[in-house]
Amino acid sequence: EFRFGPCRVEGVVLSELWEAFSAMKSTVQTQDDITSVRLLKSQVLHNVSDAESCYLVHSLLKFYLNTVFKNYPSKVAKFKISKSFSTLANNFFVIVSKLHPSKDKDMLSISESAHRRFLLFCKAFKQMDTEAALVKAFGEVDILLTWMQNFYHL
């Protein structure tokens, strides 16, 4: 199960996500020629506290579901990665639907800290051409999974 601080998520097998992404990694990352820009920089993901992690993963996964994956179907069909894409999207959907970040006032500073990290990611995304940003964000799913893995318990 995932334990993002107080947020628990069961019913997602992390190795299934890795398997799905590995099946399309080469195809997807080869489309991204801009090697000098990284959206999920270390300032976004390094040293995230447990308490922050639920807020941050909720924001990031919602962004991937609502923006990245949603605008990716044309490439999915073209690159014949529908099955792997579906596995990732539906498992991200399961995680988001089970995450309930606390809205308590005493968590305000922590949620704001997580939000600042998320805004760093959004800013880098918006500074790019939209098409290139979608391709890059999709190619960085392994960076996202690597970070999420820190909160996974067998």
Binding site: K25, S26, Q29, T30, T35, G139, D142, T146
Partner: peptide
């Protein structure tokens, strides 16, 4: 020619 993106942990 460029390599693929590499991360030793992966």
């Amino acid at each position: 020619k460029r390599s693929e993106r590499f991360n030793s942990l992966q």
